[in-house]
Amino acid sequence: MTLSPTNGSLLQVRGVSFVRNGRKILDSVDVSIEPGRIITLIGPNGAGKTTLVRLMLGLDKPDSGQVIRLSELIIGYMPQRLAVPPFMPLSVERFIRLGVRSGKGADADALYDVAAETGITHLLKSPMQGLSGGEHQRVLLCRALIRQPQLLVLDEPVQGVDVGGQAALYQLIARLRERRHCAIVMVSHDLHLVMAATDEVLCLNGHVCCAGHPDTVSQHDEFLALFGPEVQRSMAPYTHHHQHRHTLQGNVIPTPVDELNGGADDINSNHHDSHADG
C-alpha cells in the first residue's frame, strides 16, 4: 500500500517513535514539510535531530508511526560528516558529479551554474582533501543542489565553519530557497543561530517541545555581542513560547499555572547551557 502525503506536502512524519538500545530517542513526532518552506530543527545534543533526519531520508525505519514521502521526491542531502578517504584522489568537480547519473542534468553548464551559485567555481579542480571547513560545506551543498532537489536536507550545515562563514552560509541557504523554491529541512544544535529566513522552528528533545515561527530580529544582548549589528539582520534567536519543564530525558513535567513564567525561563537557560557545551 502506498500512501501519499496530504495537503500538498512533500513529506510527512506521522506519530513516529524510534528506539535504539532500549532508549526512546523519538517519541510520537509529527512533522509536515511543505514545498518552498524552511524548517529548522533545534535542540540539545542527543535530542534526536539527526535521527529524525535519517528517518525522513529513509536511512532508518521508525519503530512505530510512518514517514510518507511524495513518490519520486528528489532529495538533496548534506550529511553531517563526510571525509573522502585520504588515499582517494578526487577533485571537487568529480565529487559533485558523483551525485548525478551521467546524462541526468550532469552537463557542464548545469554544474558550473550550481558551482557559481554556491561560490565554489574556483575550487572545482582542487582535491577534496585540502578544503577549509567553509569550502567543504559549500561543496557538499553544491552536490546536494546538482540533483535539482525539491527538498534539501542539511544536517548541521555550518559545522566546522568559522563565525563569519556561518553567517554567509546561512545567507546563501536563504537565497537558494528564494531562487529555487525548494523546501529545506535544516538541523542546528545551536539555539541562538536560527535564521531569520526560517519559516518554522521545531524544537526537539525526544519529542517536539514546540514548533512555530521564530521571532524576527531581536535585540538580544548575547546575540549582538557575538555577531554585531550587520550580521544580525540575517539571523534571529528563537524565543521559546512553550511553558513546561523537562526531565533530563526530555520528558515534559506538567507545570502548575502559577509557575509558568519561571518554567519558561528555566527552559531557556537549560538550552543555553547545552549550546555553550557544544
Binding site: R54, L57, G58, L59, I75, Y77, P79, L82, V84, P85, M88, L90, F95, L98, G99, V100, R143, R147, V153
Partner: peptide, 14 residues
C-alpha cells in the same frame, strides 16, 4: 562503487 566509498548514506539517498 566510488559513491559508496565516499559516503554510504549519501549514496543511498542518491
Amino acid at each position: 562503487l566510488l559513491s559508496i566509498t565516499v559516503h554510504e548514506d549519501l549514496a543511498r539517498v542518491e
